[in-house]
Design a protein around this nucleic acid. Structure first.
Lengths: 168, 168
DNA sequence: TTATATAGGTTTTAAGTTGCAACTAGCAAT
DNA sequence: ATTGCTAGTTGCAACTTAAAACCTATATAA
């Protein structure tokens, strides 16, 4: 990806997105993550499931380990075997992965993805990922606006309505 | 990314994720999208906001247009100017973008991102993006399992409990 | 109406990344 | 001791990225 100038630095407004992309921005990263959620945990499994080149896979796995998304653990009973498992931090990517996948289903592939993620309790598929207000109302793009931290603090004190032109 | 063998083809199980990454898998794509959500719509604005190289920006913008995520529209009053605007399909990426950004905030940058996305109605920040059951319960990783389409169909008919080893 | 500036690109060149195939190191089984 | 498996590494060619210079079509100023 050219000169390794971390994206997070030049992100003029502080934003979690460049940081997230620093860890997950390469093409194979999300596919490796998806495989990990599907309980793939060995090098050869990732390789044959995804058809990724071995050197790239090795590189991506160690990057994901460096970023604390996967943990690398040689098995005691056969020390050739190495298990890659999701950490808590890695598991926390599930909403992002699903939102992306649902978008692909809806707008690109057109068909439901397999395997389907279902609620264990009643085996119903999960619902589409949405944006929610603090009181849990579902929000659409037109219900939202962007604000800067200072504006929010000011509002919090004065309870004034916001500037109209900030609407998204 | 080497040989352009579309990811979606080799995605052994049909899945929306490879399709989504085909459109959004390059590093700058999400940052361009974020800028678009922040009402950036001209080439020079993207360029100076993001600090991206001009050739890469030109390439990414046309890819996003090809994929129907942005639309390209020369302005009638000044025919040098071109507006790039989100389509409905592009706007539908907001949950995915936010989930990724929130993850970056929580696990990488450690600080809240700016600008903040708030509910217009009461100016409260949105809540973290979560996974929900069909009846709106919030689901954690341990509440979920993966199933194949046939299994779901079978269950739908017989109302049997699922195979135990599918749990995630 | 010629000059100057602006918007949105393209071109060139160097450097970095990817993919493939072949090879290696460490361990296990026979 | 040899064979085979797991998880890599290496070398090379093809491709992509970044940076800077250049280009073209408007628009604005003199």
């Amino acid at each position: 990806m050219g000169l390794r100038e971390p994206l997070k630095d030049l992100a003029q407004h502080e934003c979690g997105l460049p940081c997230a992309l620093e860890a997950m921005g390469e093409k194979w990263s999300f596919l490796i993550l998806r495989a990990a959620f599907n309980r793939i945990c060995h090098f050869e499994e990732f390789q044959s499931e995804l058809g990724i080149a071995r050197n790239i896979l090795a590189n991506r796995l160690s990057r994901l380990v460096e970023h604390g998304i996967l943990m690398r653990q040689p098995l005691p009973e056969d020390r050739r075997k190495i298990e890659y498992r999701l950490t808590e931090k890695g598991a926390a990517l599930l909403p992002a992965m699903l939102a992306l996948r649902q978008w692909g289903e809806r707008w690109e592939s057109g068909t439901p993805s397999t395997p389907v993620l279902v609620d264990k309790q009643d085996l119903q598929p999960i619902r589409p990922i949405t944006i929610r207000a603090h009181d849990d109302r579902e929000l659409k793009l037109e219900d939202l606006c962007w604000m800067h931290a200072e504006e929010i603090r000011a509002i919090g004190e004065t309870k004034q309505p916001p500037l109209a032109d900030k609407a998204a």
